[in-house]
Amino acid sequence: MKGLKTYFYMEGDRVAKAVDGVDFYIDRGETLALVGESGSGKSITSLSVMRLIPEPPGKILEGSIKLDGKELLSLSDGEMRKVRGNDMGMIFQEPMTSLNPVFTIGNQIAETLIKHKKMTKKQAYKKAVELLKIVGFARAEDIVNEYPHQLSGGMRQRAMIAIAMSCDPKLLIADEPTTALDVTIQAQILDLMIDMKEKFDSSILLITHDLGVVAEVADRVMVMYGGQIVEEARADELFTDPQHPYTRGLLGSIPNIDADVERLESIKGQVPPAHRFPQGCRFAPRCEHAMDICRESNPELLETKSKHKVRCYLYEPLSGEGGQSHGTTSREAIRSTKS
């Protein structure tokens, strides 16, 4: 994905820049996590990949989304429908409401297979039973004939995964797949997703605000704030050496079982609404390290360490990176103020 901009046009000529210039790539077999607070634009990013943005009011303004070299943004609606559910599967936050209540689970899985794989009804139902077994249903033969309300939340999410994986997609997009589930079920669903990814040789784009989930499954992490990526790093690196003050804030707000603290750290303030971003760095109003330059212009996302990019003036880009310099304050300066 390159330079994606998805804006929403609201009443009174206001424009919500929900996604404002996002670039990323996902390798085959990789799990990329997109992390951020509510309103940071992460769900809109994922819906943009599927081209499921309600239009109007939303619109993918510019950018490029390529899947295996195929440009998705120039496809017709009909061609895009052949990609959705076939090359890309998606699961959502609310398993309780994401399945149609009036059709059987089997019907809802088979439907995708009939559409994309041109199977007969009989073949599709047989495949549906197989898929349900793969996602861990012991009584798959019964489940195909059951309705969503007969299943628990975790089971419904499994069924959603079965639907998403039914056509052997190259990419599985999971938008907060475990947020609505019990903690124990969360772990099972995450394991299942990783398992599926390996079995079907696909990749995962995981949208979440839960850094615990990220630590568990992600290979690489992108932190999103105000419609832009503010930091990108390998998962282990991000946890050991977070750079952007926002990322540090997020990590600081996770309770630590070993540390004895009176009160959890929190990031003061709220994500600014997407139609009223500040002029400079979008995090500047909440940032305790904000300098004058931060309020004037928005820094670029630059590589400061190998495979580690940050959008912040506190860091020097690696030598050889052209263009903008990120001020003079060293990384150590922010470390000392933080800990």
């Binding site: 559910g85 998606m90 994401s98 149609n100």
Partner: peptide
């Protein structure tokens, strides 16, 4: 939500 799912299935 389930209509969004239906769209996501490419129907």
């Amino acid at each position: 939500d389930f209509i969004r799912t239906a769209h996501a299935k490419g129907l």
